[in-house]
Every structure is written in structure tokens, then in C-alpha cells.
Amino acid sequence: MKENQLDEIDRRILRVLSRDARVSNQKLAEAVNLSPTPCWNRVKALEEAGFITQYVALLDQRALGLPDTVIIEVTLDRHDDEIFARFGNALAELPEVIEAYLLTGEYDYLIKVAVSGTEGYERFLRQKLYKIPGIRHSRSTFALRCLKRVHSVTP
């Protein structure tokens, strides 16, 4: 099943599930105007085709004591496969890292981290990020407010 093979019912299913992954099959079927069995079969087909990759619980970083988001741009001192692999693996191990992207352009990585204020950010830099070998330069920006947050595209 490819993106262009999705019909409007499939798209409605994906929209409902992207807002509430815990919705019961009965309520999902009602929301998309299907009976429960065909709805369940469509969800399973969407999972098998890779349109639905996982179901998650979204945690509130403020409630967890990490109310601040910092965007960090990082340039590495070398650009070889070993350095990229080591750096990427190290980032994946840091619980404060919410997202990390390998980039084109001036910086090699864009990293989004959750911290508790400037002191928490300084601890993250000194005790974790700067302990990863290979960083030549970084630039950081504190987010003032999140204007939009979605966790996947909406069909």
C-alpha cells in the first residue's frame, strides 16, 4: 500500500489515531463511519504497510522537571563515517535529547534537548554533550514558547 493508495477512510483513520492512539476500535469505527471489523482490518493493513509505525505515550517535559527546550547546532571536527556513527550513537544514549538530525549546510547536527533552566543546560553541555569526542563548534538557542507541536504528518 503506497501513499497514493490511501483512500479517504484510511486518511480519516490515520487522523483520528494521530490525535488519540488509545481510541477504542468501536469509537474509531464510529468516527470514520465503518463497522468495527472492517475498521480493525484497515488499521492492521495500515500497520503492516508501514503507515503506522508505533503507538506512544507523550510525556509532559514540564511535569518531568525539564520545562525548557534548547535547540543546539553542532559542527564536528571531521566528516567521516566513523565520527558520524560515534556521535549519532552517543546522542541516542542521552535522555535529554528529544530529537537529533544530521544536516546539510553550515552545521552537521541539529539537536533538540529538554533541560531545567540555564543550570540544567550547562550541566548537560559540560557533563554530557561536550564529553562526546569530535565536536568543533556548537551554537545554542533557548526556545521561548512552542507554537506548534505534532509528532507526525497528518494525511
Rank of each mutant, 00 (worst) to 15 (best):
H151S: 12
E119N: 09
Q54M: 04
L110R: 12
A45W: 07
T69Y: 05
E30D: 14
C146I: 14
P67C: 10
A143C: 02
G88S: 15
S152C: 07
N33I: 02
C39D: 11
Y107R: 11
D77K: 13
V153P: 07
L125H: 06
E106W: 00
T53F: 02
I71N: 06
S18H: 09
R126L: 13
F124R: 14
A21I: 01
R139E: 10
R136H: 10
E122H: 11
D20C: 06
F51V: 09
P133T: 06
N4C: 07
F51Q: 08
T37F: 00
K2N: 15
W40N: 06
R11Q: 14
D7R: 05
R22H: 05
R86S: 11
K148V: 13
L125E: 13
E99P: 00
D68R: 08
H151G: 05
L129H: 04
L6D: 03
R123M: 04
W40E: 03
D60V: 08
R12G: 00
R86V: 01
F124Q: 03
I9C: 08
L129R: 12
A90N: 12
I52H: 08
L110T: 14
R12S: 10
T53N: 02
V97A: 05
I71F: 02
V153K: 10
H137N: 14
L129C: 07
D108W: 06
K131T: 13
D77V: 09
Q61L: 06
Q61Y: 13
N89C: 00
N89S: 08
V153T: 00
L144G: 10
A143H: 05
Y101N: 03
E3M: 13
I135R: 01
K131Q: 15
G50P: 09
I9R: 14
W40D: 02
R15I: 12
F84K: 11
N41F: 08
E99S: 09
E93Q: 15
K128E: 12
A143R: 00
Y130C: 14
Q5I: 05
L129A: 07
R78D: 03
E99G: 01
G105Y: 03
P67G: 08
R11Y: 00
C146L: 10
I72A: 02
I71V: 15
F142I: 01
F51R: 05
Q127K: 15
D10S: 04
T141D: 01
V97H: 09
K44C: 04
G50N: 03
S138M: 04
W40K: 08
R86Y: 10
D20M: 10
K112N: 04
R19A: 15
Y101M: 12
Y130V: 01
V56L: 02
P155N: 01
K128R: 12
V74T: 05
E47M: 10
E96Y: 09
D77H: 08
L46N: 04
Y130K: 15
Q127T: 09
S18P: 06
I83K: 05
N25E: 05
L66D: 08
G65T: 01
R12W: 01
